[in-house]
């Protein structure tokens, strides 16, 4: 699926900062990536790694005191970082849609489903409420909700968690956006429903050519879903490449560590028939306001050297496979250009 079409979204050297009384915190630091139409990009990282904030930055929804300090965001060639509040609003929910993590919290508890769907259509298009209602009904049917007409009249609390997340997805699809940002939308759901929703999202985006950014902390989810993967650590993208490149030949020690601590990676028994115990990355993810200088992973890294006190440059290890590391893992080193 790595078609050489014009990318839907190009993020270039994006930096998002929070300026507080005790100094500035950089939540998103010099982040660059792009997503093509119909492509699924997995944005992987621990909580606090800046992955959600990257999503909010693309949507222009960074709350003060946060702000986009540098970089550019281009949607289908159009620069977004200098849009006015009104232009942002016209874009959100129409060209870029977002799905949140907890379906219990994203729908307004005191408004019926139809109200919440119709307003989304009517915020962007001048059509009658009846026509908007038709669209809402179609969208619910498309995400696999039975008897959508009835569900439209329900309140959120009358639906199950999985059902609510489908509603949220239907709302995201309503205006056929160019890009959907999904922020861990399946984390709060049962595993079976999780798999269904993953599959449906993938199909829907492929069919409509919608680009999809899937934010998650779960590499297993990414493995089955994403075309390409960005791994974030402490606000920076430390490694990106095709899903196969990143998962099979990880170059950054952090990616390696993440893979080793994923249960799925250890399921394969070795020659003696034993499964390996889970390995953990030593230490804790750092707080963003006390990051070490240079490579932020340095205090937890086994391959650390004095060099790592500088910010590592991006090294292209293979076409499309980039890591920010002075000491990339040897498995990938052979193909260094």
């Amino acid at each position: 699926m790595n078609a050489q079409r014009d990318p839907t979204l190009v993020v270039d050297r994006l930096t998002t900062r929070f300026v507080g009384r005790r100094g500035a915190v950089t939540a998103v630091d010099d982040v660059s990536f792009s997503v093509a139409p119909g492509e699924v990009l997995g944005l992987v990282g621990e909580s606090g790694s800046g992955k959600s904030m990257t999503g909010f930055s693309i949507l222009g929804l960074v709350d003060p005191p946060g702000e986009i300090a540098a970089g550019s965001i281009r949607l289908k060639g159009r620069e977004l970082s200098d849009l006015s509040a009104r232009e942002w609003r016209a874009l959100r929910g129409d060209r870029i849609a977002m799905i949140f993590q907890d379906p219990m919290m994203t729908l307004n508890p005191v408004l019926r489903i139809d109200t919440q769907m119709i307003e989304t259509v009517r915020a962007h298009r001048r059509i009658s409420s009846n026509a908007a209602r038709e669209l809402a009904c179609d969208a619910l049917a498309r995400v696999g909700i039975p008897s959508p007409d009835e569900r439209l009249r329900a309140y959120p609390h009358q639906l199950s968690g999985g059902m609510r997340q489908r509603v949220a997805i239907a709302i995201a699809l309503l205006n056929a956006p160019d890009l959907i940002i999904a922020d861990e939308p399946t984390t709060a759901l049962d595993v079976t429903i999780q798999a269904q929703i993953l599959f449906e999202m993938q199909t829907l985006c492929r069919e409509s050519g919608t680009a999809l950014i899937w934010i998650t902390h779960d590499l297993a989810v990414v493995a089955g879903l994403a075309d390409r993967v960005c791994v974030m650590y402490a606000g920076r993208i430390v490694e990106q490449g095709s899903t196969a490149q990143v998962l099979e030949t990880p170059a950054h020690p952090y990616t390696r560590g993440l893979l080793d601590s994923t249960p799925a990676a250890n399921v394969q028994p070795d020659e003696a028939g034993r499964t390996q115990p889970l390995r953990q990355i030593p230490g804790m993810a750092p707080s963003l306001n006390e990051l070490p200088a240079g490579c932020a992973f340095r205090p937890r890294c086994t391959r650390v050297s004095d060099l790592c006190q500088q910010v590592p440059p991006e090294v292209e290890l293979a076409p499309g496979h980039v890591a920010r590391c002075f000491h990339p893992l040897p498995a990938a080193q052979g193909v260094k250009s």
Partner: peptide, 8 residues
């Protein structure tokens, strides 16, 4: 936040 993300 979701309502804002819908462009309302």
């Amino acid at each position: 936040k979701f309502a804002r993300a819908k462009g309302l």
